Computed example of a mutant assay.
Amino acid sequence: MSDTVRAWRHIPQRYNLIGSKCEQCGKVFFPSRIICPECRRKGQLEDIKLSGKGKIYTYSVITTPTDEFKEIAPYVVAIVELEEGAKVTTQIVDCNPEDVQIGDEVEMVFRRIREEGKDGVISYGFKFKLNK
């Protein structure tokens, strides 16, 4: 197994939504932070595993993508507000773009992101799907 693959598997954030919760003001953020952007407290943040469930806050349908994503166009990129209050920018998968609406319930899924390098290392990460 290559060092790249081994290192990749040891990154918890790749397989979980790990955010931060401020012990002072109670706000939850994603990605993890070391300083609360709300009350500016350093060192009073704890890691929190986010549920991966939420609602579409806003979205856009990408019809003219970069070369890397031409094969999957059109596709939906959304800001999802998670149950805990944090917002995540993500791709919405397994749906027709015209079926997506603001306020739709969604849940996190793992999907292929890309294939890299001469070894063909496949990177996976989180995306979201409609929960209908």
Rank of each mutant, 00 (worst) to 15 (best):
G85K: 04
G26E: 04
E83P: 09
W8Y: 15
T64Y: 11
S60R: 06
N16L: 13
Q13W: 11
T64M: 11
K55R: 15
A7S: 10
R6D: 13
S51Q: 01
E68T: 14
L17Q: 09
K132E: 08
R41K: 15
S123Q: 11
P31N: 03
C39F: 05
N96Q: 14
M1H: 13
R112G: 03
L50A: 07
P74T: 07
K42V: 10
R6M: 05
T64G: 02
F110W: 12
Y57M: 04
V77I: 15
K49H: 07
T89N: 04
M1W: 01
D67L: 14
K21R: 15
I92T: 03
D67C: 03
V76W: 05
V121H: 14
G125F: 11
I35H: 07
R114Q: 12
A78T: 06
Y124G: 02
T66L: 15
D47H: 15
V100A: 05
A7I: 14
G85Y: 04
D104P: 05
P12T: 00
V5M: 10
V77L: 14
V80R: 03
L82V: 10
L45S: 09
K118E: 13
G125Q: 12
R112I: 13
E81W: 05
V100W: 02
D3G: 14
I18F: 12
I113K: 14
L130R: 13
D119H: 14
F30E: 05
C25F: 06
E116P: 04
D119V: 11
F69N: 11
Y75N: 03
V109K: 08
A86N: 10
G54F: 01
Y75Q: 01
R112V: 14
G103F: 03
I35C: 10
G120D: 12
R6Y: 10
F126P: 15
C95H: 01
I34S: 14
V93M: 07
I79D: 02
P74N: 09
I34E: 15
M108G: 07
